[in-house]
Design a protein around this nucleic acid. Structure first.
Lengths: 109, 109
DNA sequence: ATTATTGCTATGAATACCATAGCAAAGGTT
DNA sequence: AACCTTTGCTATGGTATTCATAGCAATAAT
């Protein structure tokens, strides 16, 4: 385990990781996944859950997330996490924990 | 553990998490942390490690990350992860693992 | 003294994101 | 059936973010 992390520290950033980080930096991408943790949500419900996302961006992200097979569209219920999406949720759960443990409040201008 | 995740699924998105997700979506923010996993890097080294980041954005992110006390500036060596930054690295290590296990390649246009 | 490296700042163009309005299709109600 | 509501999206035009590139003062190395 410690060994695994040591190797991670030495190895150059993999292209897969570079892409994952790049994708993570698209606005609302991770938030959408996080909101879907509760179960399937339709377009408007997701919009409301995210707070202030504009529909054009939501629409774009949904397409992207579907192309990556992180979420899937189901006929009457809207969108839900795929298996890969569920695994990504587990990672985000760690981020949630981290954010709660942060000594400095994560305020941004 | 399963219980903890169940609770996460039910609870609304905390404001701390919302901010963490928002911050994660600033371009290069997580990548910078990931590149610093190897140890302290100076400005130009970080620039090179990230590949194509423009100096103005790097500069801005470094300020933000310092304000959040995720990284710290050390006189001759450049920038390095703080304790909180190291913890965030652990989360990113999970993301790295996830990206490697992804069945669909994370390609983006 | 000269050259190279480093840490930045400035600038203008390209891209991403925003708020808002609106509309066709489907579902529910009377 | 006629009406109203909800839903999933598209269109538009403005604002913010990020980009590539150039450059410059300060420090370090030769």
């Amino acid at each position: 385990m410690a060994q695994r992390i040591q190797n991670l520290r030495r190895a150059p950033t993999s292209s897969k990781m570079a892409r994952a980080l790049d994708f993570s930096s698209r606005r609302w991408a991770l938030r959408i996944i996080w909101e879907l943790r509760v179960g399937p949500l339709n377009f408007r419900a997701l919009q409301a859950a995210c707070g202030r996302i504009s529909p054009s961006v939501l629409q774009r992200r949904l397409h992207e997330l579907r192309a990556l097979q992180i979420i899937e569209k189901i006929p009457r219920l809207g969108y839900r996490l795929s298996t890969a999406g569920e695994k990504l949720f587990q990672v985000l759960a760690q981020l949630d924990k981290w954010s709660r443990d942060m000594p400095v409040p994560l305020e941004q201008k």
